[in-house]
Amino acid sequence: MTHTPIAGLRAPPTTYAALDGAEPLAVTDLLRAENIVKTFGPVTALNGVSLRLRRGEILGILGDNGAGKSTLMKILTGYQPQSSGKLYIDGAETALRSVDHARALGIECVYQDLALANSLSVYHNIFLNREILYPGFHILNNRAMRREAIRCLEEIGVYIPSVDAEVGALSGGQRQAIAIARAVHARARILLLDEPLAAMGAREAALIIDLILRLKAEGNMSIIMIMHNYAQTLDIADRIMLMQRGQVTYESDARSTSVPELMTIVRREYQHFQTHKESA
């Protein structure tokens, strides 16, 4: 399949090409990605994606399955390296070596599968791979982790019946909240949320939206969300980006676009494929 460009979709309203080299980085850009390409053998998952995350904002990334959103996420968390392209964190070019490296720089991700271990307690999950240990040993300080977990959940206003409960016994919203609590506790500056509202009822979704907006209001965190639901995204995000077939095809301030406008753009893609099929 060839990636023939779709008329009118290639150029997002702001092109970062203009920023290359000459113009100094805006101090408000916490994270910037330039021309990120990721290939898996013959498959191109990301084909020159650029994005910027300003300090304290929520960026919503929309797109269909296979648009490259999750691949982009995994590059931003250091889970896998990009094939080419550059990342800037706090204005400095950075090559992320590993998940631990990204975490050390304040980048935390809540994956769609939440990375929770169902058979472990709430507090062990919050501290997974960042356990509090007795000094000098690799022995877990369960009491300190328990206490910290309770404090952390209270701080972000999440109610869990017991931090001793096995995570597998909790609801989807509670599990999502625990995964977010883990990132918050790690003092994340950049929080990546992969489909935070997926498979969630309206009431639970409302709780999570509330939590995300509270984190933003506190002002210590900038958030990138991968989303499916256009209406919810426009409600929560400050800016939105539309990804299609490994590229950013549209970018806008959340207030100056609308669900119908986004639908039109996406529909054009379907129509493109339909005409393609007919002519073939």
Binding site: Y79, D113, A115, A117, S119, N129
Partner: peptide, 19 residues
């Protein structure tokens, strides 16, 4: 021990957490 159980319960998740 904690990582052994976490990796068994959710292998992908555990590696995403850096284990």
């Amino acid at each position: 021990g904690l990582h052994t159980i976490a990796a068994g319960a959710n292998p992908v998740g555990a590696s995403e957490a850096g284990i």
